[in-house]
Design a protein around this nucleic acid. Structure first.
Lengths: 210, 210
DNA sequence: CCCGAATTTAACATGATCGTCAATTCCGTC
DNA sequence: GACGGAATTGACGATCATGTTAAATTCGGG
């Protein structure tokens, strides 16, 4: 043991502040001083811990991606019917984005940067197999039971779920301003989530309902 | 008449350069000097024409939104069956986003800024009624003919079309990096567009097909 | 041919941000 | 209680970006 002054706790607090700052302002817009201010420390200390803006940004990305994958793995789907399992996945995803706008904003910012920082992170490749596998298992089960169509691709379904769920958060400002329709966490959230669930289910199920 | 040196042509060239620069780097990331360099002029001249970074950015937004709405209005849907009309709308939107990544990136950037600049622009409100009205007319026609469900909302459908089309462009970097699936303009574009069309049609049509 | 207003340029002043480094504080250990 | 390395800070220098201003240039009209 050497110097357990506050290294771990401090590191975690700084990381959380960095998540908030990068989510709020993007990579370029975020200020190291602002992160320091959020934690009552100094810019120099953050560099001492993480080694620069790029480095701490990468740490932020890895952290938030790890969190959502972890949450996805906690979904208990085995005892649900395929239809109910899909419904649960969609609703979980829809609300996860809604409740973690910071995560969504980080993903968007990273795409605006053309994935430049993500590519430099090796750990991503392995971390994200699980959600697709989970979805694929449900789809195959539904196909075996005769409830789902045969020609649906798990990746494509995941993409649709992500797209519909993210759009509700990412485009809430322009869309609601232009079309005067509630988006994000405002208005009839449950109703809009049900619409998305319906759309996905109608696509994967063999016969239309109602 | 006073001094028609090169004001209009210059102004247009500067605006186009600004569109490219803001699309490539976002509001904060964009540099007035970079815009000037793209047009072989100087930063001071741009300020002379537009009056500052905020102002020219607003001009950029109004211009690109005007362009897409204009293109949408050129869709000739009256002689198509409701189903074919929807198909055409989806395919048009999907490809418009693909072919105008700059527009998409501007929309994303503006949402990341929480629509701060868009709100300051009065002209937006009026400009964007048309696409929803067009869609609503098609849906009502389909309902009268008995092909479409009664409980579908035009705004909600437009949202879904926009979400699925935009995601293909906006999230191509993280998504394809993580899930090794082609996105954006790479891979089986036609096939992915067909998937989206299918999903929308299955949602609005009364009975599932195939 | 010259004037004056519209255009265009060069240079200035200001402020923000980042990384680094030497110096200082802190705390467990001997 | 002194030591030594980890933790933390304050200050510096360099870079970059923005808006302004005063000067210079251009061109149509008188």
């Amino acid at each position: 043991m050497r110097k357990p002054k506050a290294p771990e706790a401090n590191r975690a607090r700084i990381l959380q502040a960095a998540i908030d700052e990068f989510a709020a302002r993007g990579f370029k817009g975020a200020s190291m001083d602002a992160i320091a201010a959020r934690t009552h420390t100094t810019r120099a200390l953050i560099n001492y811990y993480f080694g620069g803006k790029e480095k701490i940004y990468r740490a932020v990305l890895e952290h938030v991606y790890g969190e959502i994958r972890q949450a996805e793995d906690r979904l208990a789907l085995d005892h649900l019917s395929p239809t109910e399992a899909i419904r649960r996945i969609v609703e979980f995803t829809y609300h996860y984005y809604l409740d973690h706008e910071g995560f969504v904003r980080l993903v968007v910012a990273e795409n605006q940067a053309r994935g430049r920082h993500l590519q430099k992170s090796r750990m991503m490749r392995s971390l994200n197999r699980s959600i697709i596998d989970t979805l694929r298992r449900v789809l195959e089960r539904g196909q075996r039971e005769g409830a789902f169509r045969r020609d649906v691709d798990a990746t494509e379904i995941h993409k649709a779920i992500a797209a519909l769920g993210m759009f509700n958060v990412t485009n809430q400002y322009t869309f609601s301003a232009i079309f005067q329709a509630d988006m994000g966490a405002k208005g009839d959230v449950a109703g809009r989530c049900a619409t998305v669930t319906d759309m996905i289910l109608r696509y994967v199920e063999k016969q239309a309902r109602a």
